[in-house]
Design a protein around this nucleic acid. Structure first.
Lengths: 248, 248
DNA sequence: GACATTTTTTGACGCTCCGTCATATTATTC
DNA sequence: GAATAATATGACGGAGCGTCAAAAAATGTC
């Protein structure tokens, strides 16, 4: 569906490009004016096509928003892949996944919320089967990427074998921790006022502790956690760090 | 606002009772038919008042849904208080908080989603200041309850002192882990099919590991984690366990 | 109990937005 | 250049939110 312009007819190319135009415009509107202001009419006006044409591309508003999410998750996967391919210990690679996650949501704070909106039953019910499958496929891909690192770590002996340490439990814990933290961070709960320190720091620290708990070598005690964070950031995500600093 | 019928005039009592009726009805509709089917008209029909009357109680649909959430969080706080008052180690009390959380969402799987819906900016923007404050007050209460246990644990020496182990970081980690896990659990991601074991088990296990990472005594290695889980369940939440088993 | 005044309830109405579909417009074929 | 196919359009029906003038009920006064 969202494959690049291979060898398509002019028609197909035009269709694909228009779809991207609609998505870009919708994303822009979503970021600028928020979900409530995103209406099909407005999108149609902005791209200078009629509503009917938009509906040739997306079967419903939910379908459009879900497509936006799919693009988000795809970008996230790109970052994850970079972490996966990093030439370091399994623990560093997994840590880098966590950083990628934080970073992504720092740069695109609204996306996490949209992803969560799409998971809402009210929205989910109105999606076409294809879109729902597109989304699951991406979720599957991203899960497997994480799972593979943990499996490698166990095989390499970086995580000592223990029947109770199944890879999926570790991935789930790490994932839920990050997922929860990001949602808490961009909800309107004033975490700082409740006494919490900056979220990304805490998340990094807690996730390192979490890995320590499984004796994932090398333990955080043997290294400077802050230095490690900065190392991974600069070696893997310097572009994104720039982007973030420009924004904030 | 939602205080019980103290010494109110008949008018005030009637008003309060009608509000509860509306909330009960709306909650029922939400659970039975889902968010999409919850309309102000339908609620009005069901309680046999007109729409205008509903709007005398709730300034908008969002306001109504947020009020439902506040009731949910209040129930959750009741469970948390039971955990807080438990006559056991600080670690057991904190663990019991986690169990209360799991249990609550096991019994009311849709509530977590509604709470998340309310946190959405699109909804949040339409809330009255009072409702938003009611919600924050509850969030503050629930946070402080958790924070107090951790602080006690540090003071009692159950968690060895370490400048990097601030109570808020520990609470945040524990909270985000649970929050994320519950949202993942009741989203449509088929966790089992992705290879994950049952969520509550993993969550319990991971949260114990998380506490171990801070050397929160007594460490899970020194005890049977499953037995501990069952002990806390039966001593604190046997009613809720029953309720859950009736449902599932 | 009858009348006046205040409070509460009502539902018709205006508005916005979604999604459809007959019609108009444009592109393609012969 | 006419016939046909493909595509775009926007008026329209329907649903739901929130309002508000008018109706109904409650309360107060004599």
């Amino acid at each position: 569906m969202s494959s690049p312009t291979h060898q398509l007819s002019r028609k197909e190319r035009e269709f694909y490009q228009r779809e991207q135009l609609i998505l870009d415009t919708a994303q822009e509107m979503l970021h600028q004016q928020g979900f409530a202001q995103l209406t099909m009419e407005r999108v149609a006006d902005a791209v200078e096509y009629s509503k009917g044409t938009i509906y040739n591309h997306f079967s419903s508003k939910e379908d459009l928003v879900c497509s936006l999410c799919c693009r988000c998750v795809s970008s996230l996967i790109e970052l994850f892949k970079r972490a996966y391919d990093y030439n370091g210990t399994t623990r560093e690679r997994f840590s880098a996944i966590g950083i990628a996650y934080s970073l992504y949501h720092q740069i695109n704070p609204l996306d996490a919320q949209n992803i969560q909106v799409v998971k809402t039953n009210a929205v989910r019910d109105k999606l076409s089967d294809e879109k729902r499958e597109e989304m699951s496929a991406l979720e599957k891909e991203i899960t497997e990427l994480c799972m593979r690192i943990v499996t490698e770590a166990i095989e390499a002996g970086d995580i000592p074998h223990d029947d109770r340490h199944s890879p999926d439990s570790i991935v789930f814990g790490f994932w839920s921790m990050h997922y929860g933290a990001m949602l808490l961070a961009q909800s309107d709960i004033p975490l700082e006022k409740l006494g919490f320190s900056p979220v990304v720091n805490m998340l990094w620290y807690n996730s390192q502790k979490f890995m320590d708990a499984f004796d994932w070598m090398p333990l955080s005690e043997s290294q400077d956690m802050d230095a490690e964070f900065e190392k991974l950031c600069s070696e893997l995500f310097s572009d994104e760090i720039c982007k973030m600093n420009l924004k904030g």
